[in-house]
Design a protein around this nucleic acid. Structure first.
Lengths: 194, 194
DNA sequence: CGTCTATTTGAATGTACTCAAAAGCGGTGG
DNA sequence: CCACCGCTTTTGAGTACATTCAAATAGACG
């Protein structure tokens, strides 16, 4: 299945695209192969694209004043990744997006996205629903961050993202949960001894 | 300025509504007065409405197994509040929405919201942009939660929501930041002694 | 004025971090 | 096939950040 076909069938879960929309999309997107550890966004870049992931896995993170990385989100097959803040404001990003595995992505530039919003209202609908679902997801995460211990957050992560949690090294999960890798190791030990 | 007029001029910051859309909205929404401490959503309720706040201020929170409240968000004038998860899935909510001040809200039921989505694509557009901005905001909060100390988070809150932080008791802010009120008091003391 | 809630303070405790070091585990090249 | 390299994971001791519980104080509202 080609990368583009993956994108088309992704939209089948929303309001499916018709022939014409698929043709337009094909002409306006750019398919890219990305190597492990390659960045598709770095601090001070403008985020110019929505990237749909056909294969592989990315992390988006910020770096604090002491130089530590903090994972804001992971994204794998059939998901989008972008720094929405930079994308909309057209201001330099404070974030990094880096491939954790070799990947194939489909990139859509802002002007093209706007083209679809203007000409095919279906895109407003679809991206509204997509972002609503992402909002619900991240809100759950916030609630966990402010109300649970690191161990509870880790167990919730395993449950919510079983596939990802097998694919990712503990260091990356620790960074997502907001704990040190050493402490995650201790959490795992505690869990195992039950 | 009437509650409805506030809603109309709120939309002027997005794609403004025309006469017909305003008329339709007027007919389909319900304006309600809400008392301080009154709930517009409680655990196990279905969240059936989007509520636009014309006056007053609300908190949305979850209660953990030990009975403690954890504030997921505040919302004041010219903002929306709803449990999107429950609203979309039509499953019982795990959250509470409670007025912190006497309030006036405008409620829109799901079937009416869908009516607008279907008949006026502008609503897809507007709510897409609204939720995108909320997503950007909450993502910033997540990054702070996983990367900053309580003191840093508190200072960031003061900066980002100066009006709210004057309006809210410290206990509520503490709950939002994910710390105990006692500890917030110590943070304030530390900040004052600088 | 009394009641209810918010805020402050302090002591003891618990949760998570820092730093340093060792052990494990792939992959890669010689 | 083995040796080495880079990265991940584990372990432990000491420390810092944040909580709990209890109690006193201060404010706000009817």
């Amino acid at each position: 299945m080609s990368a583009l076909d993956k994108l088309f069938s992704y939209f089948d879960d929303y309001v499916a695209l018709d022939r014409k929309e698929k043709d337009e999309l094909s002409q306006r997107v750019k398919v890219r192969k990305i190597k492990r550890r390659q960045f598709i966004l770095q601090e001070n870049d403008l985020c110019r694209h929505y990237s749909f992931i056909a294969e592989g896995c990315f992390k988006m993170y910020g770096i604090d004043k002491s130089g530590k990385e903090h994972n804001l989100q992971f994204a794998a097959e059939n998901d989008w990744i972008a720094d929405l803040g930079s994308f909309h404001s057209e201001k330099p990003s404070k974030l990094y997006i880096e491939a954790l595995e070799p990947a194939v992505i489909i990139q859509l530039e802002k002007k093209d996205l706007i083209f679809f919003y203007v000409n095919y209202p279906k895109f407003d609908r679809n991206f509204r629903v997509i972002i609503e679902n992402k909002f619900i997801e991240i809100q759950t995460r916030v609630l966990q961050n402010i109300s649970s211990t690191a161990e509870e957050r880790y167990l919730a992560f395993l449950e919510q993202y079983p596939t990802l949690s097998n694919r990712l090294p503990g260091t990356q999960i620790a960074s997502y949960l907001g704990v040190t890798p050493e402490f995650l190791s201790k959490i795992r030990k505690d869990i195992a001894s039950k």
